[in-house]
Design a protein around this nucleic acid. Structure first.
Length: 645
RNA sequence: GUGCCUGUAGCUCAGUUGGAUAGAGCGUUGGACUCCGGAUCCAAAGGUCGGAGGUUCGAAUCCUCUCAGGCACGCCA
């Protein structure tokens, strides 16, 4: 459809260019507000009115005959103050949509794209905020792959001491547990640490003197001394596995897990630091409050500078991030070593190590474009990182460093009550509250998924009692996953999601299960088709373009069919728009709209009961084609389509 | 204080980069053929797009001012 439209645009431009001073830029083709007014509206008469000193309407009238004879256009008419509206050749468009249904004619723009997402600190369970990150990142990856891009997904693991030291402290001092005790702990380990982490935070607030003990643990961890080091290693690795399991419930997976500990041990920073000094991107502050630090001057604003290396010689977070970003682009001249960490669907997930393993390991990074999926609160730091690249004269890479930012997931007062959280007076006055790991305040990803699954299981049981319990459980998992993924995608990224259980647990209206239900209903039609007529869905053949639309189809049905097919054909365009704006809610809304139209269509026009054979075949072809587009859209959003539900 | 983001129906949100009569979902009210599944469909009610100026053929969208809310600005990560 996108190819069809660009061919159309090219031809129109060629015709107009002969007569008017129009560039391809002036030639926007927008949908009309009402299908009665045609399919596409050209607005160039307005743009030309000034230079030609003619009324837009006159220009439109003159241009109409030029445009009306373009292949694919059946009619052109002037409307309003100077719009030139086009009616498209329905059969030709339908034929194109059938040909490309579920596929794409798009081509890649990049040699290789790296997407970094999820990035949960390995000290506690994943919560709803992390889910938003992972759903956005995974959907972006799917969209880019659909477009034909080569995509590598990285999940960065900050496994250094600072992240896990609180939990180590908790196990050692508050719980008096040794490594063997941890290994024997059953149940969800990350959930256990969630509670422990909150307890430690509360304890440290009450007992400031314990800070020195925590510092001591930290030191021993950094020196690799047991039992502290062994404990921290056990905790972080086990929690990473728990996070992976949580994300797997949503169909989210990764190619590689680069670890901060490896970045340090392989001295990525030293290499980056040498580069920064060599190219004078950082300088040693000799006076002022940053005396003794290596700082980077920030371009924008007044003379602000950011500390990159502290006066004690250690590197800050931003410094490490610059090194990591350089590596992603293959600019560091160094690589990690890798070893297998897990297997899923026959694919190996690799984790970075500091020592070479058996020969023939993979290699990662070296991208031409990098997306970092990180919430908007880190905008400032991401800007500094990009500026670091620019200061190193890697302007091209700086331009291709994209911060995919999004707003946080916060908790509604109702959710707080449901979680049993006692809000302070100050907190009570607010319309939402931020998730806080320190306070143990938040909705754990697994808990939410569990609740969704339980609810879905009830519903499935009501409707599909004849299915086996295993089957029902599988369907419930798919519904839970679809509900959650759609929920995370439907909001624009700059909108704070004020999390509310009732909304998140809804299966009606604009929800994932609604989309899934649409595809299930279609399955049902095709299942019955097979039973009654022995005809398989895949065997529905499209006639030649001239015979696609049966003669005598009512005007109303023609209009409804056309609306549906135009929407279905717009998927590619919608994906491009979503990726360009990093606004994946476009894709979500589009899929929802498609379902609304599809549901309305087959409700109004019975398929199997239709007696006119030509009309019946036509309707079958329509819903089969649209279903393929719908499945494609669901796949892009990672929403599983159950066979029944 | 500086920077970024947000303000649209009772509630939660869209609004195709400036297009024609501002749209969904939830909630409310009223309806749906022994029909392919009611997690569905149809209909009604509900709006000075925070406010005031400006830019032009045309503004929810762009510019200025202003009000309200959120976030960020560390030798934490």
């Amino acid at each position: 459809m996108i190819a069809f439209k660009s061919r159309l645009k090219e031809t129109i431009h060629e015709r107009l260019r002969a007569v008017y001073p129009v560039g391809p830029e002036d030639l926007d083709m927008a949908p009309t507000p009402d299908p009665k007014m045609g399919d596409l509206a050209l607005t160039f008469p307005f743009q030309l009115a000034k230079t030609l000193k003619k009324a837009p309407r006159t220009i439109a009238q003159e241009a109409a005959p030029l445009v009306a004879s373009v292949p694919g256009v059946v009619r052109a008419e002037v409307a309003g103050g100077g719009f030139l509206n086009l009616w498209l050749d329905k059969a030709a468009v339908f034929a194109e949509v059938i040909r490309l249904a579920g596929r794409t004619s798009l081509a890649p723009d990049e040699a290789k794209i790296v997407i970094e997402h999820t990035n949960i600190n390995p000290n506690k369970a994943a919560h709803i905020g992390h889910l938003r990150n992972a759903c956005l990142g995974d959907t972006l990856a799917r969209c880019l792959r659909f477009k034909g891009e080569r995509v590598e997904v990285q999940n960065y693991i900050d496994d250094t001491g600072v992240q896990v030291v609180d939990v180590v402290f908790g196990f050692m001092d508050l719980e008096r547990k040794a490594l063997e005790d941890l290994e024997r702990l059953e149940g969800r380990f990350d959930h256990y640490c969630w509670d422990l982490y909150a307890r430690v935070s509360a304890y440290l607030a009450e007992h400031p003197e314990a800070q020195s003990r925590k510092a001591e643990i930290m030191k021993r961890m950094e020196r690799g001394l047991d039992p502290e080091y062994a404990l921290s290693r056990h905790i972080s690795r086990r929690i990473v596995r728990a996070h992976l399991a949580t994300m797997a419930r949503l169909g989210i997976s990764y190619d590689v897990l680069p670890c901060e500990s490896t970045i340090l041990r392989l001295e990525f920073w030293d290499k980056a630091f040498a580069l920064l000094k060599e190219r004078r991107a950082v300088s040693l502050a000799t006076e002022g409050e940053n005396k003794g630090c290596w700082v980077m001057r920030l371009e924008e604003g007044e003379e602000r500078e950011k500390v990159i290396v502290r006066s004690d010689g250690t590197v800050t977070y931003v410094g490490k991030d610059i090194a990591y970003q350089l590596w992603k682009f293959g600019l560091l001249g160094r690589d990690f070593f890798y070893e297998p960490f897990a297997e899923s669907d026959g694919r190996t997930l690799w984790i970075s190590t500091d020592a070479p393993g058996p020969a023939g390991g993979p290699s990662f990074g070296g991208a031409s474009k990098v997306y970092n999926v990180i919430d908007t609160r880190q905008s400032y730091l991401q800007k500094v990182v990009v500026q670091g690249l620019r200061s190193l004269q890697y302007g091209a890479q700086a331009d291709k460093s994209v911060h995919f930012s999004y707003e946080m997931v916060a908790l509604s007062p109702r959710s707080l009550a449901e979680l049993g959280y006692a809000a302070s007076d100050e907190e009570k006055g607010r319309s939402f509250l931020e998730v806080s790991g320190r306070k143990g305040l938040g909705v754990k990803a697994d808990d939410l998924l569990d609740r969704l699954e339980a609810k879905a299981r009830d519903e499935v049981e009501k409707r599909n009692a004849s299915l086996s319990p295993d089957e029902r459980a599988r369907i419930a998992r798919e519904i839970a996953s679809g509900a959650l993924r759609y929920f995370m995608l439907k909001y624009a990224r700059n909108s704070v999601i004020v999390f509310d259980f009732e909304e998140a647990l809804s299966f009606e209206g604009e929800t994932g299960p609604y989309l899934q239900y649409t595809s299930v209903r279609l399955n049902s039609i095709f299942r019955k088709l097979k039973e009654r007529a022995g005809l398989d869905e895949a065997d529905i053949r499209a006639p030649a373009a001239a015979d696609l639309i049966p003669p005598g189809l009512s005007d109303r049905e023609t209009a409804d069919f056309w609306d549906l097919v135009l929407t279905a054909g717009g998927l590619e365009e919608e994906v491009l728009r979503s990726v360009a704006a990093l606004e994946l809610s476009h894709l979500a809304k589009h899929a929802f709209l498609l379902c609304q139209k599809l549901n309305g269509y087959y409700h109004q026009y019975p398929v199997l009961a239709e007696e006119n054979k030509a009309v019946k075949a036509f309707r079958l072809l329509v819903i089969r084609t649209v279903k393929e587009q719908l499945l494609c859209a669901l796949g892009l959003m990672g929403i599983p389509p159950p066979e029944r539900m």
